[in-house]
């Protein structure tokens, strides 16, 4: 049985994030944080490493967050969250949720060891990675998840040469309780996946594609629509993995019925960071997307047969 999908009107009215924080105008993380906290609620302890979220939270002694947050060192997110969980377990507290919330650098790069360890131990925590595809907080340097060809402060001429890491797949290879991908363009999907994850025991992971107007070199007002394009062109796929079974989420599942996906070039042309890509580069990315989706269609047909 599928849980009922939350609609905008169903969302909790209470805001757990105060206005007037230090997020950039048009920050995709801020959308996720606001809606995410509605799903998480106040009976929670968040664990946050250095990232834009550190800045969004605010400078001592004021914070925008109306939930408890433990700020920790860059590499230690999943381990510190494990410690919080261990303490709660020692206190027989099984109601307070432990949520680690880190950026792509803090997850895919410096935090990967601790993340892997926590998954392997089956820690009862939810780990959310908001992936804006570079170290935005330090001024837009390449991260492990920055896609190939993207211009950043330290790949400023020809763009990043290497592919981005597929962190959700790395996490899934550990066989945790739950893995899901999300996008800031689909906050309700994010909300419901958090709620679902928090209803489970064990390690849960949500990877959320997050637009960043300065880092992606685009106007603030189109931040959500550009993030949406990543999904609707089939470049960024929303799915869930439970018990080793992958299932496309609604926004992506809709694409299965389409004979031809909208061109990914729309997504790239909306952003300055892809400027270094040649038409041939974009064609090859388009080919990869088409091949990937042909695979999904085959899987679905054989599953149906």
């Amino acid at each position: 049985m599928e849980a009922k999908k939350t609609q905008i009107l169903d969302l909790c009215d209470e805001e757990l994030v105060h206005p007037g924080n230090r997020g950039c105008a048009g920050c995709g993380l801020n959308i996720l944080y606001r809606i995410g906290l509605k799903a998480i609620g106040e009976d929670a302890i968040l664990v946050v490493p250095p990232s834009c979220l550190t800045v969004v939270q605010g400078l001592y002694p004021i914070t925008c967050s109306q939930v408890s947050v433990l700020n920790v060192t860059f590499a230690s997110t999943a381990a510190a969250a494990s410690g919080v969980r261990a303490a709660l377990r020692a206190q027989n507290n099984d109601h307070t949720k432990v949520v680690a919330w880190a950026g792509d650098g803090g997850t895919a790069d410096i935090g990967l060891q601790a993340l892997s360890g926590a998954i392997e131990r089956g820690e009862d925590i939810l780990y959310i990675c908001y992936d804006n595809e570079a170290y935005m907080n330090t001024g837009v340097q390449r991260s492990g998840t920055t896609p190939r060809g993207v211009l950043t402060a330290n790949t400023s001429i020809g763009g990043k040469r290497e592919r981005g890491k597929d962190v959700a797949a790395i996490v899934a290879a550990h066989n945790p309780a739950y893995v899901a991908t999300c996008s800031a363009a689909y906050p309700l999907d994010f909300h419901d996946k958090i709620a679902k994850a928090l209803s489970m025991k064990g390690f849960k992971y949500i990877h959320a594609h997050t637009p960043c107007p300065p880092g992606w070199q685009m106007e603030e007002r189109i931040a959500v629509s550009v993030a949406r394009l990543a999904v609707t062109t089939g470049l960024y796929v929303l799915y869930e993995i439970e018990n080793g079974q992958m299932k496309l989420s609604e926004p992506s599942a809709k694409l299965l019925g389409k004979k031809k996906l909208p061109p990914v070039s729309q997504y790239m042309q909306a952003q300055g960071r892809f400027r270094a890509l040649t038409p041939a580069d974009i064609d090859s990315i388009q080919n990869e997307i088409d091949t990937k989706w042909a695979g999904y269609r085959r899987q679905m047909t054989s599953a149906a047969a």
Partner: peptide
């Protein structure tokens, strides 16, 4: 140690950024 408490306007009246 630094124990921050929740309140609006950590970054000031951010309406002025507009």
């Amino acid at each position: 140690t630094s124990d921050s408490h929740a309140g609006p306007g950590d970054a000031g009246r951010t309406g002025s950024w507009r």
